[in-house]
């Protein structure tokens, strides 16, 4: 005897892949056929993984142990140069500026000067980090 199967029944039978004769005998073959096609499509998935090997190599390159930190790395050299430049400019200014200006500077606005210098250093530190991230990004791929 033909029996109309509910959505739950059809889905369960197709999921379990069992009692398929019950599906054949169903009084609502259109619904069974629609579900059968749907389950077929759902199980197919996609095969577009052509790039997976290349992607795997990129991942492995990124997780490979980083080379030992070297004191002469680009980042460290940039910092050494920046500090040397700062010291040189300070020495130059101390040599060039008249003595009374330097004395006035030390005696007067020393605190604002320290604050200004500190602020400038912090700004350059922030900016250099941002810059380093920018120039490092393409090489990481």
């Amino acid at each position: 005897m033909q029996k109309k199967l509910s959505d739950e029944d059809i889905q369960r039978l197709l999921s379990e892949g069992d009692h398929l004769e019950a599906l054949d005998k169903a009084a609502n073959p259109e619904e069974v056929a629609a579900y059968s096609v749907l389950f077929e499509v759902l199980a197919e998935g996609s095969t577009s993984f052509e790039q997976s090997e290349a992607l795997e190599e990129k991942i492995m390159a990124k997780i490979s142990p980083q080379s030992k930190a070297r004191w002469w790395s680009f980042e460290n050299i940039a910092w050494v140069l920046a500090i040397c430049t700062f010291i040189s400019i300070t020495i130059l200014l101390l040599g060039v500026l008249p003595k009374h200006i330097i004395e006035n500077l030390i005696a007067g606005p020393l605190l604002p000067l320290v604050a200004f210098t500190g602020g400038t250093v912090m700004f350059f530190q922030w900016w250099s980090k941002k810059w380093m991230t920018k120039i490092k990004k393409p090489s990481s791929d």
Partner: peptide
Amino acid sequence: LFRARKLLKDSILKAQQNGNFLFE
């Protein structure tokens, strides 16, 4: 899972009723 499959099945049946395709 049930709702998604049911809606997809209904869409197939609707398209069939519109005469777009027949099942084998």
